[in-house]
């Protein structure tokens, strides 16, 4: 695939955006190392939040890997995503312990409150709803994580207050 032609059009824009510099550094750090693709994608997603085709092309070029292979890897692993994500990722654990303790009801409540399905982002761009497998906190089942925060021993009734917390803090930071 000819990707070079694509590059120049947005060069100017990229020069201004520090994230592209970071990406170049990440690629330089791993280039030539065996098994570099997955660690590079991890770090690139950390920087950009998701992995749109444009970023995939830059990685393909930088690591000298076919774009088809990158697409194959991104679609295989559930953690990589080509879609933009909400500001907060809500992960509902549907591991066995959490399921047994009623995680299904908690998930239904979240879908209802946010009016979205799993793997979708709320209209305000604030939340992306995801299902995770055991996060290793089975003692606190059912468990939901929002960004870096973890909430345990939940019932559907706890959900509104939790969501409200993030919506509030968002309002405050905008004000």
């Amino acid at each position: 695939m000819e990707v070079v032609a694509n590059k120049c059009q947005c060069e100017a824009l990229r020069a201004k955006d520090p994230r592209y510099k970071k990406l170049a550094d990440i690629i330089a750090k791993y280039a030539g190392r065996e098994g570099a693709l997955i660690p590079v994608l991890h770090e690139a997603q950390e920087v950009f939040g998701h992995l749109p085709p444009e970023i995939q092309m830059l990685v393909a070029e930088g690591l000298d890997v076919p774009l088809s292979e990158i697409d194959g890897v991104i679609t295989f692993y559930s953690l990589f995503t080509a879609e933009p994500q909400g500001k907060y990722k809500i992960g509902v654990c549907l591991g066995t312990a959490c399921y047994v303790k009623g995680a299904g009801d908690v998930l239904d409540e979240l879908k209802e409150r946010l009016q979205i399905d799993v793997n979708k982002t709320s209209a305000d761009g604030l939340f992306t709803l995801e299902v995770t497998r055991c996060v290793g906190a089975c003692g606190l089942a059912p468990v939901v994580s929002v960004g870096d925060d973890v909430y345990g021993r939940l019932t559907p009734d706890d959900i509104p207050a939790i969501l409200e917390k993030y919506i509030e803090s968002e309002k405050n930071s905008n004000a």
Partner: peptide, 23 residues
Amino acid sequence: RVGAGAFVCGEETALIASIEGKR
């Protein structure tokens, strides 16, 4: 090496493919 969310990667031959940076 950090995985990327695929249960099958616990299987040894899949895990090896993943270490190599493949599906």
